[in-house]
Structures are given as structure tokens and as C-alpha cells.
Design a protein around this nucleic acid. Sequence first.
DNA 1: AGTAACTGTTACCTTTTGGTAACAATGAAA
DNA 2: TTTCATTGTTACCAAAAGGTAACAGTTACT
Lengths: 107, 107
Amino acid sequence: MEKKVETNLCPFTTTIGLIGGRWKSIILYLLSDHTRRFGEISARMPSISRKVLTEQLKELEADGLIRREQFKEIPPRVEYSLTPLGQSLKPILNDLAAWGQEMVLDK
Amino acid sequence: MEKKVETNLCPFTTTIGLIGGRWKSIILYLLSDHTRRFGEISARMPSISRKVLTEQLKELEADGLIRREQFKEIPPRVEYSLTPLGQSLKPILNDLAAWGQEMVLDK
DNA sequence: AGTAACTGTTACCTTTTGGTAACAATGAAA
DNA sequence: TTTCATTGTTACCAAAAGGTAACAGTTACT
């Protein structure tokens, strides 16, 4: 439960801590062009459970990479989008996707 | 134990599968300039156990990102280096490190 | 004979991560 | 009054990941 924000000197440990894991980079990528609702993200990532998606979104928000906006409506509507810090990752996310794309094609 | 090489259509799943996890990007970064021995890598990453380091190196080798060269000497000497595929990741690794470095400094 | 050097492997245990299913909240629509 | 829609939370369980400690193998050095 105690997820200490690593004041680690290693820049990789820092980066991996923020955007590592199986899901975060995909989530960030999904948000890189659009503000999206919870249900949209979930629908585009069928292999992640809602529970874990909620957790990942909370961590990304706590780390300042995404913004969560909740509208006082019934049924609820919640929109997620990238913060400026999150935006600063876009080039890296694109490179990661491009590299993976090459891997897929060259197979 | 069955680590199937994902023929997944999602480029992120592919990339994360290959270089994700807490350790792999750091290992690749350590090897990006130098061929290094097992003991060297271990010494530079004190927080990873030898067991897990061995596992990660095996996976990286199996995925074609690093090369393992074993010399028939006593005591044993084993050297690890990047393959061309691994080399192709260097720009991304540098970007990840640079991004993390900014995070550390801006704190 | 005993020990150090180096790169692992193996057995066993703990911690972390993730899944499923049930529940919650609430207004609108049927 | 019942159901639907949406975004979660919670309790509980299973799987994955990682740690520690002991052992292996071989030559040279003391």
C-alpha cells in the first residue's frame, strides 16, 4: 500500500516507476490524442480488469501524468486526459510504439 | 514458465514484453556502451538478486536483444553485449534516461 | 588440504500483482 | 417499482515475481 515515490538517483528507476508496468504506457498512449472516459479506456483494453485499470489510473494521476475530471451527473461521467507532464512523454511513447511495430512486421 | 513470445498486434504489448519490467531497460542501458561481465552488471545493480539477474539476462538473450559469450576459463568468464536489435533501442533508452533525469532534477 | 574466484542453479518461502464476483449510488426511463 | 447506465470499491483468492541460502564445478594460490 505504501508506494513511496522513489527519490532514486537512477533515472531509469524513476522512469520505470512512473510509466512501467504492463498497462501504463498503453493508457498514456490512448490518452495522448484524446480525452477519454473510463468506459472508453476499458473498452479499448479488454484484457485489463476494471479494478486494475482503476488502480493504474489513480497512480498515474497521483504521479501527475494524467488529470481526472469528474462530472456531477447521473450516471457518472469521468474523463481522463494527459497533463503537461504526461504530454512530455508523447515522443517517447511514439518511439516505443514504432519500435514495437517494426518488431511485429519483421516477424 | 511458458513465456510465449506474444504475436500480439499491439505494438506496446510487444515492446513492453521485451523490455518491460523493473530491470530490463537498465540492463540494456548498462550494455549500451560496453560489453560487460556478469559480475560487473551485478555490481552496478546491487538491488537485483543474482537469481533474477540471471533470469532477465536469459530472457533478453532469448528475445535476441543481447548476446552471451562464455569463455572456457577457470574461473568462468561470461560477457554480455547488445545485438544489433538491442542497439536499435539505444535512442529510446537514452530518451527514457533523459526524461527520468529531468524528473529527478525538477523535484 | 583448504580456500578463493566466478557464474550460475535449486529449493523454498514471501511479496506483489491481478482476477472474479458482489455490492454501492442514483436519477431517468419503461 | 423495476431496470439500466456508469464508475467505482471491497473481500477474497490465484498467479507471478522476487528474495535468501545452500550447493556446484574447476583451477590456482597459500
